[in-house]
Design a binder for these strands. Structure first.
Lengths: 222, 222
DNA sequence: TATATATTTTAGTTTAGACTAAAAATATAT
DNA sequence: ATATATTTTTAGTCTAAACTAAAATATATA
């Protein structure tokens, strides 16, 4: 009845989910091909396979859409991926940027018991180390809100998710003061005069960053 | 140069290792086919693949032998398998009869960092939950002496390391009478009539177990 | 509207890993 | 020593998932 999916099939479903604004809306062949780093022809083959398995709906020349069954599978893989990322960072001291490749492998391990025990072992975390929400066993998760650091109110906590500016002087500066992707940031104070703000990084001592810097730092609000 | 191996290729190498009395000696096609639950023809295909990759040596009609490179790969997979088993039992409260299937999947995850961190996290264990030794990162492990409980003389003490039979009725029975991995067992008496024996479990009161059960209980002799 | 461009689909190959059936080599038993 | 049985290898086929090249369709522009 529910034949086991290959790693590849699972990866296509995951990509479909991410590309279709959280699972609703259709994805065209070329977009999926680019995301999967393969050819449109290969994608077309796979889309036919997966729609044969009722995991997505497809009509000729009109792109593909995840079915509810397909969405369910995608969310369970995302859940596994993010739980493993938490494990790697919290238990095995992986750095933020070392987890992805390994989690890409671990997400395909098939064992419901493993995942429920892992979830428990980790204390049923709600977000992964990048601040992305972890779906529960029914696929429910709360949406994350992303905002520039300069845009949130005092007391807001979040996880650094991107720098909307690739000026290398800025990047070096961030590195020096300990701001990197994945760190937890809390806004402590805001100075009206120049728009600079005081933040704590990973629960450390408060330090100031200027408005232009705060403008370019994006966080997911926790 | 060192192209990544498929799960299947890794499984063949692992089977080769187990079938060739710890990696030395040749394995014939039929034996390997039975172990891999496939046909001799398929095995032959794979043996040609793997000898092309210098992971084993093969001469026509004369069976296959692991090369030192192949043995190295096999041992690294066995290492990963056993470390994951320790993780599942010690951290995720898996029962010793629930770990195998999941470890069969986890052993193929490719990340040297993951394994070295996992090893550290687990306190560099020397044996897995079945009492089998865990190879170190260079493939070294010490041999353990195992014997069936029915085979040792009165007065012998040992530690329960495995059950050479995965019948689930037996496993449940053992669980009920308090026999689990790691318990210390001493042979108190042997009854010639039916071959049953009296043992003490963790220095407790003697109790009898039948010959068929004693046959399938393996201990490491102390 | 007609034509150019972009996207999607079809058709035909390729590789890994399985399969079955049959042929070849080796081992064994009378 | 020869017949028989066993084991191994070859040959040919199948499926999943990729590929390239070409055909079909859709979209955009003159």
């Amino acid at each position: 009845m529910n034949a086991e999916l290959s790693f590849t099939e699972e990866n296509y479903l995951k990509a479909m989910y991410h590309l279709s604004s959280e699972g609703s809306g259709s994805v065209n062949t070329n977009t999926l091909a680019e995301s999967m780093k393969t050819s449109p022809a290969s994608v077309h083959d796979m889309v036919k396979r997966l729609s044969g398995k009722k995991l997505l709906a497809h009509q000729k020349y009109r792109g593909a859409t995840l079915s509810s069954k397909g969405k369910e599978v995608a969310l369970s893989i995302i859940r596994k991926h993010r739980l493993w990322e938490v494990f790697l960072v919290e238990k095995l001291q992986f750095k933020w940027d070392e987890v992805h490749e390994v989690a890409e492998q671990l997400e395909h391990i098939k064992s419901p018991l493993l995942i429920s025990r892992l979830d428990e072992f980790l204390g049923r975390p709600k977000v992964d180390p990048h601040g992305d929400p972890i779906p529960d066993e029914h696929g429910n998760m709360k949406k994350t809100i992303k905002a520039a650091l300069s845009n949130v109110s005092i007391g807001t906590q979040g996880v650094m998710v991107s720098v909307s500016n690739d000026n290398s002087t800025l990047l070096k500066h961030l590195d020096k003061i300990g701001i990197e992707l994945g760190v937890k940031i809390k806004v402590i104070d805001q100075i009206d005069f120049d728009g600079s703000i005081a933040i704590s990084i990973d629960e450390g001592n408060p330090q100031f960053i200027s408005k232009p810097i705060a403008d370019s730092l994006m966080i997911t609000v926790l």
